[in-house]
């Protein structure tokens, strides 16, 4: 579902969103605030998502725990 292409798709989505918010921002004296805030917020959110995605793309360590019981894992899997 999610692989390396997600990064570029996400970027495209943000780019489109930014362009749309530039033109669709309400006219009037608050236009600048709308434009700046929407685009900046979109970029910041994308950046955070991107960093999190990349960090897990090729993880160097795997989760380990020793408090698991097989029944629970099998039960969860059957759900």
């Amino acid at each position: 579902m999610a692989n390396g292409w997600s990064v570029w798709i996400g970027l495209l989505v943000i780019a489109v969103f930014s362009v749309v918010s530039w033109f669709a921002a309400p006219k009037g004296e608050n236009q600048t605030v709308w434009r700046s805030s929407l685009i900046l917020a979109a970029c910041a959110c994308y950046l955070l998502w991107l960093i999190t995605f990349l960090a897990q793309w090729h993880p160097l360590i795997v989760p380990r725990r020793s408090d698991l019981r097989p029944e629970i894992i099998n039960h969860e899997r059957s759900l």
Partner: peptide
Amino acid sequence: EDFKAGDPVAAKRVEGYTYPF
């Protein structure tokens, strides 16, 4: 799937899939 309760276990990666969000 097969381990005894209390054993240290390591998770396996689902191939080709990255957690999306």
